[in-house]
Write a protein that binds this DNA or RNA. Structure first.
Length: 110
RNA sequence: UAAGCUGACUAGGCAGUCGCUGUGAUGUGUUUAUCAUAGAGGAAAGUCCGGGCUCCAUAGGAUGCAGUGCCAGAUAACGUCUGGGCGGUUAAAGCUGACGGAAAGUGCCACAGAAAAUAUACCGCCUAUGCACAUAGUAUAGGUAAGGGUGAAAUGGUGUGGUAAGAGCGCACCGCACUUGUGGCAACAUAGGUGGCAUGGCAAACCCCACUGGGAGCAAGACCAAAUAGAGGCUGAUGUUUCUUUUAAACAACCUGUGAUCCGCAGGCAGCCGGGUAGGUCGCUUGAGGUGUAUGGAGACAUACAUCCCAGAUGAAUGACUGUCCAUGACAGAACCCGGCUUAUCGGUCAGCUUACCAA
């Protein structure tokens, strides 16, 4: 599901549960729901061309959809950093997989 | 067949699985399931023009400012498009144009050159007179602008007559100006006559002439709900008259709006600082709409009839994976909507035209 409301975003940021890599910044906060909700931020300042911005957003959403069973019960916000735009598609895929693995190790196993 | 030019179209296809957004239907009953269906571009981009739409209680006049600038037409409108004229360019098809005015005025024209615009005379050419035996030379006075040299540009060009040497001084042709006729809606073209050369270039220098332009933009704007708050600070709220006074009214001034200035018009509290918010619904997609046929037109386009409904998000929907085929997929993502222009772009298809070669 998509994270839509402004107040939800603020709640996630205020939870201060974050993970930083070279390509992404991920915030997490628990919600009292049965599903996982995701918001992707790809700002115009980081990724200039609209096509690339859309591409990154879709990739993120797709990867989280695949893993949505493990991630349920939490709200997630992914911020894409400007380095990501210069990578090709294959590299972006690899980085996303790596990110998901890191998330699993850090939070879900606890 | 090859090379080139012009115009139009297209922008990986097919099958399967999972998912996203809108709409409709059904169920459940209050926000979710299931099914069906639709879902980015030729430039969606740059925001460079024009228009619709909305608001600013009006848009009226003068000046200014900005834009446009051969002619005719198309259009809602345009700086766009079509056709034509003229200039430039190409072997041709074609391409291309800041294409009104320099005898209204002001200004500028580096270097070189005598002289860059009131003209003038450096080297020259020629005549007369003096010096000199004389040619030559030199000095003075005068006549010239043919030749040389400079420059991006030199005061009509070429030829011929003419002359002391020369000169539109005369003549022929070309150019130019004026004028008359013819063709054309017009730009303009063309034929005749007259003049005897006047008007160097730059208007992408100011300027003049003609025409056009009120401003701001969908975060426009309308409604609903909540919250601060009809809160705080600062600035200006004047004078005269009427009235016993307050209030109120009139006139002048002042302030605000009419985003350049003045007049005019409207209003009487207005402006600034600082703080907070921007949640929902509408606007929001049926439109100068698309497609087809017919008619009119040289064309841009117009008219009539038939038919179709074709994105509408808002922390922002089009994706991922698998198989397969080929040429191995460029530039690139709607955000109120249209008409253009400009820029980016791997390719592919079709039509017309030109030239060259070959064959008949």
């Amino acid at each position: 599901m998509r994270l839509k409301l402004s107040q939800d975003y603020r709640r996630v940021f205020d939870a201060k549960c974050k993970l930083v890599t070279a390509f992404f910044v991920v915030y997490m906060a628990s919600n009292q729901l049965e599903v996982a909700r995701l918001g992707v931020i790809a700002s115009k300042r980081c990724i200039r061309l609209a096509t690339k911005r859309n591409q990154v957003r879709r990739l993120c959403r797709e990867h989280f959809r695949v893993c949505s069973q493990q991630l349920r019960g939490y709200d997630w916000v992914i911020i894409a950093r400007s380095v990501l735009a210069n990578q090709n598609k294959l590299e972006q895929h690899r980085q996303l997989k790596k990110l998901l693995y890191l998330i699993e190790v850090k939070w879900l196993n606890q």
